[in-house]
């Protein structure tokens, strides 16, 4: 990619490795949930992260958010943010105080909004708890800011007086989005924010995420296993399999012409209204990350597997100006 002319990416992840390390009864076990992931997220961009459960998506974003708790340990690599020229590197010697950065610059939208909002306190108090210290204004002015923000997101300011259980699931998720964006952060992490919602509510919530992202011009990393959501929301898409990034590129290009057999399978197996052709499911199960297969981690399930796939681990290589893939079958000149 051409550097220099383009503005610096907001997030740069380089060769990141994060393992869950357990020592039980004298047996050491490393679960390599994130293994050598390199990616960047540009300013004003929605980056989609796809992959099935236990492929390391959530571990990756935990690492990006700096939410590391044992047994999860960062083994190597770096996570670097660029908040309007202020460079912040999370796993450095002089790592910053995360409390200063969180919510002001880096916020997240969780899957279960019920666990974000305190069930015993009114929504207003959740806003105060999360955001008051980051918006340096007296309380009355702060609440005016919050009300104005809610109105911009087409929410009635009366929700501030409600308790979380009084709101429907979709409404709670909207409140959680408003809460995550009230400080106008540069970077937002959304972890499966619409998975538990039904289709009509899901569409409303996605439209809202899109609008608020455009309005405040922040970057967003959006995690879900639902490719249809990615197709409708994300600018670029990264596909993870068994702890590794296997393909990355513009969403439209990946959906039109997936290069990695795993991505191709994910897209081909999507049911569509108006299409009754039989869809094949992928055989086998994802590998255990404690004992991943040698070589390419997808090869036991891969229809294109070759000899080299069992021995060597394919690296991410460029197959287009902004399209990378880690597969020997898709990389020209590597076929055997």
């Amino acid at each position: 990619m051409s550097e220099g002319a383009a503005p610096a990416p907001v997030l740069t992840v380089t060769a990141l490795r994060a393992y869950y390390q357990t020592r039980l009864f004298g047996i050491d076990r490393d679960v390599r949930a994130v293994d050598n992931v390199t990616l960047h997220v540009n300013a004003n961009e929605i980056y989609g992260l796809a992959g099935e459960s236990s492929c390391g998506k959530t571990t990756l974003i935990k690492t990006i958010a700096g939410a590391i708790r044992p047994p999860l340990k960062v083994q190597g690599g770096s996570v670097e943010f660029n908040f309007h020229g202020r460079r912040v590197s999370l796993y450095d010697k002089n790592a910053p105080d995360l409390a200063d950065i969180r919510w002001r610059h880096l916020s997240y939208i969780m899957q279960g909004s019920m666990s974000v909002l305190n069930p015993l306190r009114r929504v207003r108090n959740s806003f105060v708890d999360f955001a008051f210290r980051h918006i340096h204004k007296p309380m009355a002015e702060f609440l005016d800011t919050v009300r104005a923000h809610l109105l911009r997101l087409h929410l009635q300011p009366e929700v501030l007086d409600a308790y979380p259980h009084e709101l429907s699931g979709g409404m709670r998720q909207r409140v959680a989005i408003a809460l995550a964006t009230v400080c106008r952060p540069e970077f937002i992490i959304a972890d499966e924010p619409t998975t538990a919602l039904d289709v009509i509510v899901q569409k409303g919530v996605l439209t809202m995420i899109r609008e608020v992202q455009r309005e405040i011009g922040s970057s967003l990393i959006f995690v879900t296993h639902d490719m249809a959501v990615h197709a409708n929301l994300c600018d670029r898409l990264g596909v993870m399999y068994a702890g590794r990034l296997v393909e990355e590129g513009p969403t439209a290009e990946i959906l039109r012409e997936p290069r990695h057999p795993y991505t191709a399978h994910l897209i081909a197996s999507l049911p569509r209204i108006g299409d009754v052709a039989p869809k094949k499911a992928l055989e086998g199960t994802p590998p255990s990350l404690a004992d991943p297969p040698l070589g390419c981690r997808f090869h036991p399930r891969c229809p294109l597997a070759m000899d080299i796939c069992k021995r060597e681990n394919p690296q991410m290589e460029w197959v287009g100006p902004v399209h990378r893939v880690a597969c020997f079958a898709a990389q020209p000149g590597k076929r055997q």
Binding site: V199, K203, L206, A228, A231, N232, T251, A252, L255, R256
Partner: peptide
């Protein structure tokens, strides 16, 4: 009809190649 229209089509991005896939 509302229910059907709310279903996200995986083909939305492919149709809008070159542009941002946009939910409107």
């Amino acid at each position: 009809i509302e229910l059907k229209n709310a279903v996200l089509s995986p083909d939305a991005a492919a149709r809008l190649y070159g542009n941002r896939p946009i939910m409107e």
